[in-house]
């Protein structure tokens, strides 16, 4: 199994506690060098918009929560469709949700940029699995 080094990830979750936990887990496991934390879908989209020409700043992976106020995971994915291809090629999306509802999973997995679905909490094992997909 080859060891993949992820340069940067972005955490999108309205729950600051979760963001903290996930950030810590990623830091502790050394999964990625840089971690960008956005506590709303809106701010995450704004970040992508402002840096869409600057591919180096953009994250390799986006951990996206589904259940968020105003811009939830679904809205985010809808807006994400409109970004230019280089952005979409660079940023892969992993859903990180406390929901294990089949309905939610089916809706999300249909999207071509979503590469995985992880149920909270984020664990070492889940990150190891993720590495094999990348």
């Amino acid at each position: 199994m080859k060891e993949v080094q992820v340069n940067s990830v972005m955490l999108v979750d309205d729950n600051d506690t979760d963001n903290f936990i996930h950030k810590r887990v990623i830091e502790l496991t050394g999964f990625a060098k840089n971690i960008i934390v956005k506590n709303s879908g809106k701010s995450a989209l704004e970040f992508l918009e402002s840096n869409k020409s600057n591919l180096d700043v953009l994250p390799d992976l986006i951990f996206l929560d589904i259940n968020m106020p105003i811009v939830d995971g679904f809205v985010f994915l809808f807006e994400y469709e409109n970004f230019p291809d280089p952005v979409k090629d660079k940023c892969k999306i992993v859903i990180l949700s406390s929901s294990d509802s089949k309905r939610d999973i089916d809706r999300i997995v249909d999207n071509e940029y979503v590469i995985n679905f992880i149920t909270k909490p984020l664990s070492e094992e889940a990150l190891d699995d993720l590495k094999t997909i990348l």
Binding site: D18, I21, L28
Partner: peptide, 24 residues
Amino acid sequence: YKASHDLKAPLRSVMGLIKLAKLE
């Protein structure tokens, strides 16, 4: 659906925290 999610979310956070605590 809503209730279960809202119940689960904090629970998952707690689970995350426990795992983190164990790591650290």
